[in-house]
Design a protein around this nucleic acid. Sequence first.
DNA 1: TGAACGCATAAGCTGTACCTATGTCTTCTC
DNA 2: GAGAAGACATAGGTACAGCTTATGCGTTCA
Lengths: 306, 306
Amino acid sequence: MSSRPLPRSVRDLTGYELLLSVAELGSIGQAARRHDMSQPAASARLRQLEADVGTALLERRPRGTRLTTAGELVASWAQATVEAASDLAAGITALRADHHGHVRIAASLTVAEYLLPRWLIALRAADPETVVALDSGNSAEVEAGVLAGSADIGFVEGPEVASGLSSREVARDELALVVAPSHPWAGRRRNPRAAELAATSLVSRERGSGTRLALERALAERFGLETAEPVLEVSSTTAIKAAVTGGIGPAVLSARAVVAELAAGTLVRLDVTDLDLTRSLRAVWPEGAQPRGPARDLLAIALREQ
Amino acid sequence: MSSRPLPRSVRDLTGYELLLSVAELGSIGQAARRHDMSQPAASARLRQLEADVGTALLERRPRGTRLTTAGELVASWAQATVEAASDLAAGITALRADHHGHVRIAASLTVAEYLLPRWLIALRAADPETVVALDSGNSAEVEAGVLAGSADIGFVEGPEVASGLSSREVARDELALVVAPSHPWAGRRRNPRAAELAATSLVSRERGSGTRLALERALAERFGLETAEPVLEVSSTTAIKAAVTGGIGPAVLSARAVVAELAAGTLVRLDVTDLDLTRSLRAVWPEGAQPRGPARDLLAIALREQ
DNA sequence: TGAACGCATAAGCTGTACCTATGTCTTCTC
DNA sequence: GAGAAGACATAGGTACAGCTTATGCGTTCA
C-alpha cells in the first residue's frame, strides 16, 4: 500500500473541473458561471493549473477557448477523477444520518463499497428528486432490517437468504487470494491448494466479517477444513492491504478491492486450484411485497448493470 | 453530460487521504506525520470531514483511532477517488515539458488517455527512479517519432504499422455508437445497420482524428459507403458527449470514454448489427531494436495487463 | 506511580483565493 | 468602416480557511 500522499496539484479538483467545463462549453467565462465564480477567478485557477502541469492546456482565442492536445489528455484523466469523486459524493449524501430518504437502502459492505454509488447516480439521473438513505451492515443485519421494515430494499452477500424474503442476484463477487510480490507463493510455479490455504495464517478482518465467513465456510463445507488463526486481525480493508504489502502474510479479499494494487504490481493474485471463491450478491425484499417506486427503479438499475 | 459541479466536500481530497492513512496506520498522529502536517491540523480536518458527512467516521480510542462502519465505507469510496487522482498525477508528471525523461513515450490519444497512467504507476512501482516523458499525437505522428528516434517506444491505433517498425498488440479498443436516451434510435427494437449509420450526420471530432478515421475506413472498406457530413465538429471528447446528451445527434466514441455515462444512463449504447468496430492498440519500436531498459519494462507491464 | 502515547483545545498568524472594476483585443454586424 | 459584443487579462483590496505551536486531559502499560 504505502499510499504516497498525492501531490498538491491534484488534491484540489476545482481547476480540473473548470478544465472539463471549458472543454464542454468552449469558454472560460461560461465555465466560471457554471461553477458560480467570477471569470477572473476561473482564469486564474486555470493559469495556475497550466503552471502546475508545466504545459499549455488551453488555446485562448478571441472567440473562446479550446483545449490543446495536452489539455485533452489532462481533461480525460481528470474526468475519471471527477467521476470517482462524484461516486464518493453520491455515497456520502446517502450516508447522511440527519435526513430521512424516500428510499431506505440496507446494504452489505461489498455492495455498498463497490456497486451502490454508481446505482445511486443512475437513480438520481432518472429522477433528481429522489433522496436516498443508506445503512450498511453485515448480511444478517441487512436481512433483519428489511424484514423489520426499516429498509425498503436490501443487498446481501451469499447464496441463501432468510425465510420471508424474496431475492434476486444482481452481481457476483469473487474473492481473491493475494500476497506481496516478495512472498514465496508469488514465485512458485504451482498455485496453493485449499488445504495449504487453510493451514496458513492469514491477515484478516475481525471474526464475523462477511468475506472471512465466506472463506471459512467454503473451506469447512467442501473440505471439512478448519482455518488457521490469523497472523493479524485488523479492522479495515485498507489496513489488510497494507499488512499484506508489508509482508505480514497473505489475505483473502474481494477481487474488486485489489484491482488497482494488482495493476500496479504491489500485490500478486493467486488462484487456489481446488476452491471456488465466487459468491452471489443479491437484492432482497419482503416476500410478496415487490419493491415499488424508487426502490423498484433501483432494482431495475442494478439488474441492468449486471 | 451536464456534469454538475462537485459538492465542496469532495473537491479537496486531503481529508479523505488522511482518513485512508488513519485506516492504514491506526492513529491520527501517524497519519498527520505521513502527510507532513501537525497532529492538530489532521485532527481538525478529520473532524471537518465528519461534519460534512454528518456521521461519525472515526472511533477515537486512547490507544489509537479506528474506522467506524460508515468510515470504512467512505474510505473505500475515497480510495477509488484517490487512485484516480493518482493516475492523473502520474500522467501530469509524464507530461511536464521541462524535464527530459529516461523513457520517452509517444502515444496516440486513446492509449494515453485510458491505459498509460496505470502503466506509469506500475513502472514507478517497479523502479521509483524512472522518469518518464510523454508525447501524444495521432498514430502517424507517433510512428514518425519512434522512427526518428525521438521516442523510445510508441503506442498506436490500428492494425498496420509503418514499415521499419516492429509492433505487438497490447490491448484492443472498441468503438461504441451512442445516442441520448431521448433519441429515436434508443427506443427502437432493431439496431441500426451500417448503411443507416453512414447516412446519418454524427457529432464528431475534426477530420483527421483517429476514431473518426477508423469509422470512415470501416464503412468505406467493408461497404463502400461514404459517411455523411457531421452535424457538429468539436475538438474534445467531453464536448462530443455533451452534444450527444443534448440531443444534437449520435456519435461514435471509444467505449472506454463512455462507461460512466452508460452506467448513469445519460447515454445509451447501440450495436451496429453488421459492423465490427474493434481495433488493435499496438506498441511499436524500430525494427531490430528491441526495447531495452525502462522501455522494455513498460512493454512488459502493458502486456501483463492485457 | 509515572512515563508514553494519543487526541483535543486555544491563540495567533499567514497566505490563498475570491470579488469588483477596468482595460485590451478580436470579430461580427450594419 | 465604425461600433458593439464577447472573451480574456490585469489590478487592487479583502476575507476566511487552514496551519503551527503550546498546552491539557485521559488511558494504558511498565
